[in-house]
Design a protein around this nucleic acid. Structure first.
Lengths: 227, 227
DNA sequence: TGATGGTATTTGGTATACCGTCGATCGTAG
DNA sequence: CTACGATCGACGGTATACCAAATACCATCA
């Protein structure tokens, strides 16, 4: 079982089987290949992925802490439902968390952070231009992750990471949200970060997330009612 | 193996072995019976607790997501170190998260929330008076949890819960911090919540946590240097 | 003294089996 | 035809045993 990622960083970039399975399931949930509400049967997944039940179990538990999977005691796991209220709550938390992170990042960001922001923005713009909606969504989320990481508080990064799966699942519902407005927001935000303007970074981040909230929650609501 | 808790809530309040082991380890880590840096050997714990290795494994992974345990790939797990910087980061996140929650709670709290706040405050005061430092610490944390829960955003509650173990571990280092000042802060906060004053609740919460931060981080630093 | 090689320990992962619970189905009684 | 109850199968929760790989420790040798 080859686990050799092309990542050339020192030492072998080891990922445990659990993480690999976790990534696999997460990706399929985000892409709605595993539909909300769908049951995740340990034995079936273990057979399909050719790993042991234990590994699948651990992956499912991990995903449940990310909110992508709901576990009903003694009855198994299912893909988390797409509930408009949950979506609202997620955005509320993101606004609080990320605007705090943006303010901190404005004060603590390094020049290489700035370079990373620019790089991710440019890649996202290219992906949007080329109609690669999935790649664009992931890159935009990576941009947010980069800003949070630049806050200098690793705990913030960890928490955000555990939320980003759910956020991506929401973004990947319909087609692309207004990717251009998104890009412009990011440009402004990076400008504030570059000038170390903490207050502006904070409010830009809050407004930016609030803006995407509206359309996203609306689409979740539409999907929920169509059912 | 009797798992019948006396909890009379509808349906049996089922706790899996994994959760029981998790609780056991968490408690011992918080109380420093398992010292920071101490190795957690799966087989030993499994034997000691009379459960299988699998269960211990899952519990350890769970605790690592709470930050109470550090996992080194292929080398096992150890109780998380007490690092002053980590402590700072934890408090920074708590300030952001809980002041946001306090503001929301001011707007959404119910009367029964208020009753619960009063109850927990009173119990904590009694515990402090009786010199039950451990009980007081847990009750104070439960008070914070109650405020976060009253925000009406379950996601905030989940995130806070995953942080509270680490926070308790920090609080249980030396002796009691200034429990009376703590109590007074809580009284003021509840007053703001009662009057639905979101801004006051937010800033009171932020100040309150910032106040406990100083002394706590200081003690962690002292402990780290003594080593 | 320092490098080297071997050995013991421990994790990561697998296979397998058992039990208890839950949900669904089906049959029977009213 | 509905309602209730017994049965059964599916699946999660747990235990045990085992293997492979990697680390840490220790002893030996140059």
């Amino acid at each position: 079982m080859a686990v050799t990622s092309s990542e050339g960083t020192l030492g072998s970039r080891y990922r445990s089987l659990r993480e690999l399975v976790c990534d696999n399931l997460r990706d399929r949930i985000i892409e709605h290949q595993l539909a909300p509400g769908e049951r995740l049967v340990e034995r079936d997944l273990a057979d399909a992925l050719d790993v042991s039940r234990i590994v699948v179990r651990e992956a499912i538990h991990q995903l449940s802490t990310e909110g992508l999977v709901t576990i009903l005691p003694r009855r198994g796991a299912q893909v988390a439902a797409l509930d408009p209220v949950d979506a609202e709550n997620l955005f509320e938390v993101r606004i609080g968390l990320e605007s705090m992170a943006a303010a901190a990042a404005a004060e603590r960001r390094t020049d290489s952070d700035l370079a990373r922001f620019d790089d991710l923005m440019e890649q996202a713009r290219a992906a949007t231009r080329d109609g690669e909606a999935k790649r664009a969504a992931y890159l935009n989320m990576e941009f947010h992750q980069a800003v949070v990481d630049a806050s200098g508080n690793p705990l913030l990064g960890t928490i955000f990471r555990s939320l980003s799966g759910r956020a991506l699942q929401l973004f990947r519902i319909g087609q692309d949200l207004d990717a251009h407005g998104l890009h412009d927001d990011h440009v402004d935000l990076v400008d504030a970060l570059r000038e170390r303007d903490a207050d502006r970074a904070r409010s830009l981040m809050a407004d930016h997330i609030a803006a995407t909230r509206e359309s996203t929650v609306e689409r979740v609501r539409a999907l929920a009612e169509r059912r």
